[in-house]
């Protein structure tokens, strides 16, 4: 089921066809579109300048082919496929990193330099570039830079590169459709908030404050027009 169908389902379910009857007094009740419409537009409020900048950045190429190959390997070491969701490359993380280093140029030298640093390490240790080293040899280098609290001081450049790469890989993965599936993310769709589910309240030992219970937004009356008495008490 795609997102559009998903939303349609929600509307026909909890949100009563997306239309609510509202109105009071002598005026005839009027139907108002209460729930949002979701189009497939791509403009999303971009100014002409923003559209131009995004297009320019997309047209540029930063990582060379050999760098991209290394990046593909590394992001999957950081976020591999497991029984919950796919890998970083399956989620398109390298393309995201390619865009973000162009959008935020301060990443460019640390990333390019860090990828080179892996080669110099592999040359010094094994006499060949990183990607030509064996899997065990590569992991040996990664283990030396992946744990900041345990890493040797002489590894600090590699540590800081790997921290950056871990950040970008994690954020790229968990902001992708694959990542949302992994997190079982349930938001960003029209709904009616009626508080923390009872079982969750119970699990953490929370109760709502008695005095507020009659005041809280009530899903059953949320579609009727608000009215107050002169003292500001809500009566409708």
């Amino acid at each position: 089921m795609n997102r559009r169908e998903n939303l349609k389902l929600l509307f026909t379910g909890s949100l009563a066809s997306g239309l609510f009857m509202t109105g009071c007094g002598p005026e005839a009740p009027k139907e108002i579109a209460h729930a949002p419409t979701i189009g497939e537009g791509t403009k999303w409020g971009r100014t002409p300048e923003e559209m131009m900048r995004n297009a320019e950045l997309k047209a540029e190429v930063f990582f060379r082919e050999d760098e991209m190959k290394k990046l593909n390997y590394l992001v999957d070491v950081i976020i591999p496929k497991d029984d919950v969701s796919g890998s970083a490359t399956e989620a398109g993380v390298p393309d995201f990193i390619e865009f973000i280093v162009k959008d935020m140029p301060y990443y460019q030298t640390p990333m390019r330099g860090g990828l080179m640093w892996l080669d110099t390490q592999a040359e010094d240790r094994f006499g060949k570039p990183f990607m030509e080293a064996s899997e065990d040899q590569r992991i040996e280098i990664i283990d030396d830079i992946a744990y900041p609290d345990k890493a040797k001081p002489e590894m600090s450049r590699g540590v800081s590169f790997f921290n950056t790469l871990r950040d970008l890989t994690s954020t790229g993965f968990f902001t992708s459709p694959e990542g949302f599936k992994d997190l079982d993310y349930k938001g960003n769709r029209p709904n009616v908030w009626d508080g923390v589910p009872d079982e969750v309240m119970a699990k953490h030992g929370f109760k709502l404050e008695e005095k507020y219970i009659p005041l809280y937004m009530n899903p059953d009356t949320r579609s009727t027009l608000a009215q107050w008495d002169d003292e500001g008490n809500l009566i409708g």
Partner: peptide, 30 residues
């Protein structure tokens, strides 16, 4: 500045997922 009406589809950023932005919703100068 320019006109703006979030009810128009062309101005809508609401209910979009992060991957609809190439920078995943990161900030920009503007």
């Amino acid at each position: 500045g320019g006109d703006f009406d979030p009810a128009k589809e062309e101005d809508r950023t609401q209910l979009r997922f992060p991957w609809e932005s190439p920078r995943r919703g990161a900030s920009t100068q503007n």
